[in-house]
Each structure stands twice: as structure tokens, then as C-alpha cells.
Amino acid sequence: MTEFFQHLVNGLSLGSVYALIALGYTMVYGVLQLINFAHAEVFMLGAFSGYYLASWLPPFSREPRFVVVLSLSMAICACIGVVIERFAYRPLRQSPRLNALITAMGVSMLIQAIGQLPFFMGPSPRFFPELLPNRTLLSAAGVSLTTLQAVTLGAAVLLMIGLHRLVFHTRFGAAMRAVSFDGRTAGLMGIDANRVIALTFMVGSALAAAAGILVGLSYPRIEPTMGVLLGLKAFVAAVLGGIGNIRGAMVGGTIIGLVEAMAVGYGSSSYRDAVAFGILILVLVFKPSGIFGKAVVEKV
């Protein structure tokens, strides 16, 4: 039984990481119907900007320093996101969706390749500084939970609530939903679709930066290719939950995290990655638009 609870804790904390990254995928998809493969790279850049900021900033008291690093990286990545959208995606707004997708992959490859060049980040992994102390928070009956696991979990929940409020209780959110529902009509109603999309990218990229820093804290090894595997899993989580749906990203991330933990615990660790994809396929075959996704009926 101890193992079960430990697996539960492990699964939830890993799931919250997936969920954090999945939120960015799902937001962009909701508005543009674009799988933003570059999101994983913005996540990586978020971690690296945190790394560089932490080494440049003068040392002052711990918690405010963490907040400064976090908010600055979020701001930096928000800008990066807007730049990517402006120069790589906007010119392709009218082209077939596959082109935008290939462009997204191109951006992702380019950022990775440049990041690996020795005069940028270089390929070797780096140690992410300990911005927050990591202690064992809870160690009852053999189940252990660290502060950072708790922080990540809390941050994921808080960000999701914030995002939910942003989307459903603000004017910007209403505009976003309008663009997502029908871009042309929204435009006719006086909504500046380009602005909404740019803002969406800003928010999504800032979220990716936050995820990058939180991941860097709990798993202090960062490298230019760190986004690839995590990004893919997070994306799978977003699809599982129903891509375009914020709650779906959260639930999908948690499910993938839990499934992986349980697959190791009660199955075989060597097939763990296959199990996650297997679950995804099963869900999609029976519910083609994901758990929370609405089945869209195409009109002729």
C-alpha cells in the first residue's frame, strides 16, 4: 500500500509538469488549430533564461530572487513567443494547416540546432541553480513528498485557475473564445484577431517559461534538447484531454503522469512510454476528440 501512495504522489507531481506544458499547446491550438511544436523549445528557453538570470542577478534574499527570475523569464519568453508568431506563423495564416505545422517544426529544429552551437548554450547539460530550498516536506509511512514537488503541483493548479478566469471571465478571454470559435465572424464583430492571437502566444509562452523554471528546479539538469521528450508527452496529454480545452490539458497531463507511474509500479518500466501512447490511442479510438473535446460536426 505504501508503494501505491508513493506512486500516486510521483504520478501527480510528474503529471503536473506535463499539464503545465500542455496548457500552452492547448491554448494555441484552441485559437489557431495549430500544433505549436516550437512550444517545447520556448519551454527550454524559459529554463535557460532562468539559468542565465540566476547567474547574473546579484545575490539577495532567496524568495524575492526566485520571483524576480521567474517573472523576468516569463517576460522574455512572452516576447520570444510573440516574435515567433509574428515572423513564422502569421505569414502563413491563410495557407493550408500542414504548412503551418511544418513551419512550427522548422522553428523548433532551428531553435534546438542554434542552442546546441557551442557559442550559445552548447550541447552539454547544465546544473540549474537551487533558487528555492528543496526539503522533504512530508515523509509519512514511507511516502515522501518534497517541497519542490508540492510547489510544482500548486503552481500548476494556480496557473490553471488563473487561466480559466482569464479565458472565461475577462474581455480578452471572450475575444479569444470568439476567435477560436469563428475567426472571420469575430473579425467582423470588431475583434482584432491578430492582436488576440499575439496575446495568446504571449500567455502561452509565459506559461512555458514558468514550466521551464519549475522543471529546472525539481529536475536540475537543463540542456538544449530537454524540450523534445517532455514536449511530446505534454502534447500527448493535451490531445488526450481534448486539445483546445484547458481543463482537458490539466486532466490529460495528470492521467499521463499517473499512468506512467502505475505502469512502472504494476507493469514493466521498459514499456512505460508505450503504455502512455497505448492509452492515448485507446481513448482516441473510442472518443475521437479526447476526453473533454467536443465532437465537431462538420457542416457541408
Partner: peptide, 18 residues
């Protein structure tokens, strides 16, 4: 569309892991 892409991607990954 994208859902088909993800399922085929998933199958390819399962084959590789196997």
C-alpha cells in the same frame, strides 16, 4: 486531421519502444 497524426505517431512510438 491532427488526431490521426497523433494516433499514427503513437503507433510508431509503440513499435520503436517494443
Amino acid at each position: 486531421g491532427d488526431y490521426l497524426a497523433i494516433v499514427t505517431l503513437g503507433f510508431a512510438e509503440i513499435i520503436r519502444v517494443t
